[in-house]
Simulated scan of single mutants.
Amino acid sequence: MSAYVIAGIFLSLILLAGYLFLSHSIEKKRVQRQRLITALRARRNSFRDLATGFPSGFLSNDLTGLLYRALIDCCEQLSRLEPNDQTHTENLNLYTNLLAAQKENAPQVKVRLDNPQQIKEANQLLQELNKFVAQQAALRNINQVQTEAYTDQITRLMLQITVDGHVFNARQAQQIGKLRLAVHHYALARKALAADNGSHLFDKQIAQLDAIMAKLQEKVEVNSEAAASEGEAAPAKAPATGDQTTSKEWRQFDEENDKWKKKSIYD
C-alpha cells in the first residue's frame, strides 16, 4: 500500500473524527439550550401563576416586586434564546410596567388563603421563588442583606399558609362534629409554630391553640362519658354555636396570627 493511500486513509479518519466531535458538540449545545428554554418557560409560568392566581394582598409588596423582577429575568433570557418569539418581548414590557406601577402602590391589607388546593399550590410556588432568591444570591445579583430579607419573608409566608391550612381543616372537622380530628389538626398547627419559635415570637398563639385544644378535648371526654352512660357509642356532637369560650380563644388566635404575619425585616 502506497504512502499516499495510507496518508489519505489517515486524513479521512481525522476528518471523520472531527465531524463526529463537532456534531456531538452541536447536538449537546442544542439539547442544553432546549433544556434551558423549557426550564425558563416553566419558571415563568410558575411565577406568573403566583402573581396572578392568588388574592391581592397575599404577597407583600416586597415579594411582589421580587416576583416581577424574576419574571423580567425569565423573559430577558427567553428573548435572547428565542429572538423570533415576540411574546417574550411583550411579556418583558408588561412585567417591567407592572414593576414600575407596583412601586407606587400603597401597602395592601394582608389576606389569608382558605382553599386547601390554593394553599398546596402556594407552597410549591413559594419554594420555586425561594430557589430563585438563592440563584440570584449565587450570581451576586442581590446582596446578603437582601437575600436574608427575601428568604425570611418567604419562610414566614410558607409557615403562615401551613398553619392556615391546618386551622382550616380543624374548623371543617369541628363543623361536622369530628372533635378528635379537629384537635389533631390544631395540634399540627401548633407543631408548625413551635418548630419555628426559637425567638418565642409565637408563644401567645401557641398558648391560644393549647386553650382551644383543651376545650375541645374536654368536649370529647364529656361526649364519651355521656355515650358510655347510655350504653351506646353516640357520635360526638358538634360544638354549640354559642360556645363563647372557644370562640373567644379562636378570635384571639386570629388577631395574634395577623400580627406576626405583618412582621418582616422591612417593617
Rank of each mutant, 00 (worst) to 15 (best):
Q135F: 09
I119C: 09
C74P: 12
L92D: 11
V31T: 02
F47V: 01
Q124G: 06
N61I: 03
Q124R: 15
R33E: 09
D62R: 15
L98D: 14
R48C: 00
K28G: 09
V111F: 00
Q77P: 09
L40D: 07
Q127F: 15
L126F: 02
D73A: 13
V31N: 11
L71M: 12
I161S: 10
R41A: 11
L125C: 04
Q146C: 05
E90D: 07
V109M: 03
S56K: 13
A51T: 02
E90P: 08
N91E: 05
L81V: 06
S60V: 04
L94A: 05
L99M: 02
N141M: 08
D164C: 07
I72F: 09
L157V: 07
L94T: 09
K28A: 14
S23Y: 10
Q146N: 12
D85Y: 11
R30P: 01
Q153G: 10
M158I: 00
K120Y: 14
T151I: 07
L92I: 04
S46H: 10
S25D: 06
S56Q: 10
L139P: 12
P116C: 12
Q146L: 06
R35P: 01
N130Q: 11
G165A: 01
Q86W: 05
K131L: 07
D164R: 13
D114K: 15
F58Q: 07
Q86I: 02
L159Y: 01
D73Y: 14
F132L: 13
A122I: 04
S25M: 01
E128P: 10
A39R: 00
Q136A: 09
I161N: 12
I154Q: 06
A42C: 03
V31P: 01
E121T: 05
D85E: 09
N97R: 15
D114V: 11
N93D: 08
P55M: 07
Q34E: 06
Q153M: 02
A134Q: 12
L113Q: 10
Q160A: 09
Q124C: 03
Q34C: 03
L94V: 06
V31F: 15
N143V: 10
K103P: 07
R69Q: 14
I26R: 08
D62W: 14
N91S: 12
I161A: 12
A42S: 05
L67H: 14
G57W: 11
L159I: 02
L40K: 05
P83A: 03
A51Q: 09
L129Q: 03
D73F: 14
D152F: 13
F58E: 06
R44G: 06
S60Y: 11
R112W: 00
Q136K: 02
P55H: 10
R30Y: 15
V163Q: 07
N97F: 02
F58M: 11
E90N: 00
L98S: 04
Y68Q: 09
K28E: 14
D62Y: 15
E82H: 05
V111H: 02
